[in-house]
């Protein structure tokens, strides 16, 4: 394990930002900290950066404790949501700042800055000031500044959140390529599950200051352990045990033992097959056309169910339909009563 945080706890007065949190990052891994605002993900990132002190617990790099090492001696790179370029320095001075501090000869700094400007595909902007660049350009410069010193860990605090949709999508891909190329272990904080799914080797899903589930994007999406994860990672139809028992008992086979409200069924909308049938037990409530997919709300014996289909769809409101759900599509998740849409 390259970087580990063990049993980190942090209180702000009455509020618990981190509650006995332990995570780890492997060499070269891209890890996303995912969770709603206030879940403690930024506190955890700042703890790793050395910008926030924890009440108890330990941060260590390659087995050596970091807790007492101030931020400026950790040799990490950090990128903030607000770009945070030094407004009084040129782009080149910003990128070279870390090297200047490390007393690198100027010629070497110039060379490195040049190279990084190429890497972020902004070779012409070295002499400009941050204020003269667009948001996306500024954020690329901020990334270049962070990696200029060959950081042992790269920390990204919602780096894409302030950008508009198109720029966000393209910069997301760039970050992914850059990280793979350089192999810097990277921790990114985000509240955008799509971003996490696309970028991460591993997602750590947090809520209320605790790690709810950690795993590959696939594991988290296909095998959520709790209602919170099922709901936060994409959309899920969450159906109480009693309803399943009454209407589709076949789905009960995979259910762990436990009282009715301990587990809840989670079924992804795209895993449900829908077909128009005069004798169907369900009715279409509404249909939404989203371009590449259709979102259909159905009133069924299981309750109101959301179904997503690809390709052409000629279902109309009020039409009788039947739904088909395979046993594999139904995941039983711990009912942590903390879903976004209870």
């Amino acid at each position: 394990m390259y970087l580990t945080v063990s049993n980190a706890t942090k209180h702000y007065g009455q509020f618990t930002a981190l509650d006995d949190v332990s995570i780890s990052i492997e060499q070269g891994e891209f890890v996303c900290l995912l969770g709603p605002s206030g879940c403690g993900k930024t506190t955890l990132l700042r703890t790793i950066a050395g910008l926030t002190e924890i009440d108890s617990g330990e941060v260590s790099l390659q087995g050596k404790p970091l807790t007492k090492v101030p931020a400026r001696q950790r040799g990490f790179g950090i990128v903030f949501q607000s770009y945070s370029l030094f407004p009084n320095m040129t782009v080149a001075e910003n990128i070279g700042y870390g090297l200047t501090i490390r007393k690198t000869p100027q010629a070497q700094i110039d060379e490195r800055v040049e190279e990084l400007l190429e890497t972020i595909s902004l070779p012409q902007v070295g002499g400009k000031y941050p204020g003269q660049l667009s948001g996306g350009q500024q954020q690329r410069v901020a990334i270049a500044r962070a990696i200029a010193v060959d950081p042992s860990v790269l920390l990204l605090d919602e780096p894409l959140s302030a950008l508009d949709a198109k720029v966000r999508a393209s910069l997301r891909i760039e970050i992914r390529h850059l990280q793979k190329k350089l192999g810097i272990p990277t921790l990114m904080v985000t509240h955008d599950q799509e971003e996490a799914l696309e970028l991460a080797d591993k997602i750590i899903c947090m809520n209320h200051g605790v790690v709810v589930q950690a795993g590959t994007p696939k594991e988290l999406y296909q095998n959520p352990k709790t209602r919170f994860v099922a709901d936060f990672m994409g959309t899920s139809n969450l159906i109480p045990t009693a309803r399943i028992r009454d209407e589709m008992p076949v789905l009960l086979t995979a259910r762990p033992d436990g009282p009715d409200d301990a587990y809840i069924a989670s079924i992804r909308p795209e895993q449900i097959a829908i077909s128009a049938r005069e004798d169907g037990t369900s009715t279409v409530l509404s249909t939404g056309f989203l371009g590449n997919l259709n979102r259909i709300e159905v009133d069924s014996p299981l309750g109101e169910i959301l179904v997503e289909t690809h390709g052409p769809c000629d279902l109309r409101q009020g039409q009788r339909v039947s739904l088909e759900i395979l046993a594999e599509a139904c995941h039983w998740v711990a009912n942590d009563e903390d879903g976004v849409n209870p």
Partner: peptide
């Protein structure tokens, strides 16, 4: 904080 992380005292 950005300065600190870059190593500035």
């Amino acid at each position: 904080e950005a300065g600190e992380s870059l190593g500035a005292g």
